[in-house]
Amino acid sequence: MGLFILRRVGVMILTGLCLTFLVFTLTNLYPNLEKLAKTQGNFRMSDEEVSSYLERNGYLQPMVVKYGEWLGVLPSYRHENTDGTIQGRCILPGKTPEESPDFCGVLQGYWGFSTVFKDEVGSIIGTRLSLTGKLMFWVMVLMVPSALILGVLSGMKEGSKTDRTLSTVAITTTATPEYVSGVILIAVFASSTVGLKWFKGTATSAMESANFENFFLPVLTISLYGMGYIARMTRASMAEVMTAQYIRTARLKGVSFPNIVVKHALRNALIAPFTVIMLQFPWLLNGVVIVETLFNYKGFGWTLVQAASNNDIELLLGVSVVSVFVVLVTQLISDIGYVYLNPRISVT
């Protein structure tokens, strides 16, 4: 088991390095840097001014070197200006070059500076991530139990009328992406002209104080899309368990049907959905980006859109690292959990 986890972690770190290098390369291509120089300086910069700006800030070094500096394994670039002062990524305003460290990258905890929000990337991501964490928590609270109940109810008696109805519901929710269900939900529950006016159509106020009125619609929108998929997995796994020999034995012994479902079937039927729920995280991340944009909830997904559309290179890199990290860690947990829950699978 220990070796298995070690190997998985090794592959995970390798994947993480490859992905961050890919994102780094794509965000540090010359057209992006040129745009950065022009937004930081002025829009009428000549080509020479652009390249001298980039040279001063160390953007013209080879890609691998820049990546190493950003990661914090290579000493960071320093440029000596004509007046003798030294500037560099690690030298913060008000510090002398001697006081500043040689290495400043992600490994040292320095994530860079956001050009859009005019703040440290690390602290932006921290605040935004906690807002999204709140959203995700309630999504999980709503989605997981309802999906499991839906799946168990329809998988209990395969082919019955309940099964047909609930399966159709599950298919419909998987066919409804967040930007469609969000629009429909706002139209029905929040529109100021014809709708029921039960909830609010924006979740901006939920950032400080979330309540049922301003937070339910975004939570529901994300939950709906993921729910159908988990429910279908649970149904398939439940239906398979219900045909097993030990369930038949229990029935013949005269155990009541609810007892069979709760005590004998449920535990075995929930192994597969567990991995699915874990693997759902990357999809939820997509949903979060759409829903936060739609409901104007300024969390992590909203920050991703802002960083990407405003060419905020260091913030976008930070956001990518965090999201790739979340995806990889959930994959790892789902692998380990699967082996742990299912005694029939051995890692050796």
């Binding site: 992905l19 759409i290 991703l304």
Partner: peptide, 8 residues
């Protein structure tokens, strides 16, 4: 490729 969030 699969570990990338699609929107990113």
């Amino acid at each position: 490729i699969l570990a990338f969030p699609v929107i990113l």
